[in-house]
């Protein structure tokens, strides 16, 4: 079972990120997934988050009990949700937007310049999809193939190509990071 928190600010596609991964897991990977999102003023411009539980069996408890993965797209989101990340958790963050504190426990941090990549691709708005590619490569909660199917379901038709490119960019960057990690320093 994987418990994932996506955190950022409103307008970054934080909730959509939860939906895309959830859809990939439950519709294309044949697992069970439950996504809940934060509502209220925080979802309209301020700090914003969504939580996703992915499991091999029916998800009984819909919220996170101990986040195994935190995907942080803003400093405020990181500050708010870092404490709930479990000691063996994975931290994925946009290195231009988040300055993490000193690592605690056995938390493994993974940084990506997601927004910068998105800008290079032409649209800042796809930064969340870049980080989803990165997320897919690093965490393996969902398969690459399923994500490639789930993304077109969740974005406007004319933006599909760009989103898939963004996904590839993040995914490949993730693979490189993993490769580097395995190489002896």
């Amino acid at each position: 079972m994987a418990e994932i928190r996506f955190a950022g600010y409103g307008g970054q596609g934080i909730i959509r990120s939860g939906i895309i991964v959830g859809r990939a897991a439950s519709i294309y990977d044949d697992k069970f997934s439950t996504m809940s999102q934060s509502f209220g003023p925080e979802a309209r411009g301020g700090a914003c988050s969504s939580q996703l539980v992915v499991s091999e069996s029916k998800v009984l408890y819909p919220y996170l009990t101990a986040a195994g993965i935190l995907v942080a797209m803003s400093q405020a989101g990181y500050d708010k949700f870092e404490p709930e990340l479990s000691e063996k958790g994975l931290l994925l963050y946009d290195e231009d937007l988040v300055k993490p504190k000193a690592s605690r426990g056995n938390i493994t941090p993974f940084a990506i310049p997601a927004t910068r990549f998105a800008e290079q691709l032409g649209k800042k708005i796809v930064a969340n999809v870049v980080i989803l590619g990165f997320f897919t490569a690093i965490t393996k909660v969902v398969t690459y193939e399923s994500m490639k199917k789930a993304i077109p379901d969740s974005v406007p038709e004319k933006a599909i190509d760009l989103n898939l490119k963004a996904f590839e960019r993040g995914y490949n960057f993730g693979l490189e990071v993993l490769k580097k990690q395995k190489e002896p320093q």
Binding site: G22, I27, Q37
Partner: peptide, 9 residues
Amino acid sequence: ECVGHMTEK
């Protein structure tokens, strides 16, 4: 609200 705002297949 929990079920209403819960996204699943």
